[in-house]
């Protein structure tokens, strides 16, 4: 479903005299099969967001080849947009001044979702994410937890085969977080939606991801199951400590 083949992305920063090239992502290769639930971890600045932007077609890679749902993201951005759902936890896709239901209606038009399919999908998501209480509230008045549920709904209205989540639980309280995780787990299990999740909350990873990839300094440093990840640092017991060790020590051999 997602194929990344020796992808690199560099940025030039600074003015003429001090110009340097920053390699945000280098020689990155991985494959995600349909129906997988993959966690994508890395310290701040490791290249996670750059990867996501390339997978969604927002940024073109400077080298290598990417295929998502059979399309080259940078070239077929709009065609790809109809096949994938994206949630940026720190941003919102909803319209600040419009009630939630109007945002959804607009998204229906943008994605050209059939009215009947849309109704069914929205009813299902409204039930699962408990949106009924604030459907008519303007987005600017929603709490973070409500807004995030609205954003996840917005990303799924067109029934995408792939869902890319960039920190979907950031800032959520324990109850909202648990509800969000349960929803994502069911989405993956019941609909077979392929999910790629980046997060700094290792609870998300432990509860949801069968497979974990770790990126550091723009390179993939680990790709395997959660148990494999634990086994890399056997003397640590909690997953947080394992990951902290991996972030500070740099590369690991899986």
């Amino acid at each position: 479903m997602i194929e990344v083949d020796r992808v690199g992305r560099s940025f030039t920063v600074g003015r003429r005299r001090t110009r340097t090239t920053v390699h945000a992502v280098q020689d990155l290769s991985f494959t995600v099969e349909a129906g997988e639930f993959v966690g994508y971890l890395g310290p701040n600045g490791a290249g996670k967001s750059t990867t996501i932007k390339m997978l969604t077609g927002i940024l073109a890679p400077t080298s290598g080849r990417i295929q998502v749902a059979g399309l080259d993201p940078a070239r077929r951005r709009t065609a790809l947009a109809r096949k994938i759902g994206v949630v940026f936890g720190q941003r919102t896709t909803l319209w600040w001044d419009l009630p939630l239901k109007d945002s959804f209606e607009l998204i229906r038009h943008l994605y050209k979702v059939d009215r009947v399919d849309f109704r069914r999908r929205l009813d299902e998501l409204t039930g699962l994410l408990d949106l009924a209480g604030f459907m008519n509230t303007p987005v600017r008045q929603l709490s973070l937890g409500q807004r995030m549920r609205g954003d996840v709904t917005a990303a799924l209205l067109h029934s995408p085969a792939v869902l890319v989540l960039d920190e979907p639980t950031i800032g959520l309280d324990v109850v909202s977080k648990a509800a969000m995780r349960e929803f994502l787990r069911r989405l993956n299990a019941d609909h077979g939606t392929t999910v790629l999740l980046t997060t700094h909350d290792l609870g998300d990873i432990e509860k949801l991801c069968r497979r974990v990839m770790l990126i550091d300094h723009g390179r993939l440093t680990f790709d395997g199951t959660l148990d494999d990840l634990r086994a890399t640092v056997p003397e640590e017991t909690s997953i947080e400590d394992v990951v902290a060790r991996l972030y500070t020590d740099g590369s690991v051999s899986p």
Partner: peptide, 16 residues
């Protein structure tokens, strides 16, 4: 950076 959200929509940014 919110422009990222606009760019994942299946519509031309300018026409939109």
């Amino acid at each position: 950076g919110d422009i990222a959200v606009d760019l994942v929509r299946p519509a031309s940014l300018q026409m939109w």
